[in-house]
Amino acid sequence: MENWRDNKLVAAILIVPASAWILIFFTLPLVIVWVFSFGERGPQGQTFLAFTLDNYARALELIHLGILWKSIWTAAITTLICFILGFPLALGVAFAPARYKNLLLLLVILPFWTNLLIRTYAWIAVLRTRGFLNFGLEWVHGKLDALFSLVKLPDVMGTFQPLALLYNHSAVIIGLVYVALPFLVLPIYATLEKLDRSLMEASLDLGAGQWRTMAFVTIPLAFPGILSGLMLVFILSLGTYLTPVLLGGTDSMMIGNLIAQEFGPARDWPFGSALSFLLLYITFIILWIRAVVARRSKGVSY
């Protein structure tokens, strides 16, 4: 690698334009929000620059803390479900025969490229009262009903009541899992793919069964990748805005929605800014943890 001093002009031409763009149109806006977060809201919703911690204090009031807490556990549950579904998927793709591997990987990646809004919207048709899932349940119900009347047990099932699957918090979690799953599978897949197979074979050879091999060898060795996946999913679901809006009910407000509300109808930008930075601080802490783990695992040459 070349030292920038040896070729200052070229280095500057390559680096400065992009850096300037990110500085002006990304970092500066964030700085403004950060400054706003210490400001005061005027009577007409204007933002006055000041130095007050009131906005942060408000963010930690019970009602707002509840929303933050709800966001955190929603993200945690989403991450957990993603892991339960996604880890076997990553394992399956990584250990698939070479000729299917690329196809399977493509199948995992494709939804990831599809529009977030459309993917979320697609679930409305699945979950709503007259949606595919209720339709399927009704069909099963009808079949069972017919079966019961056949054995002279009429009306055990009662009439079919469509389930309220949409516009509640479970729908939000389903939507989040759906959107985030590829983000978990890809990093785990990448680490498993690089993992030396003979380590797993050695474990089996030494007398450990599948589950022990998984617990003592595969998962510890794939840990950096697993952690990356878990954290990506967590950050993504923590800051979600769209999913609760489209799939959630009245009780589904998450921190992203609260921020949007303060910047939108509520017109309390200083408070919204404080919330926004609260979310960013959590994100930074998570990124920092990941960096520490990555640095530590680098010492051991896996």
Partner: peptide, 9 residues
Amino acid sequence: FQSYAVFPH
């Protein structure tokens, strides 16, 4: 094993 497969962790 050829690669020794000593558990690195």
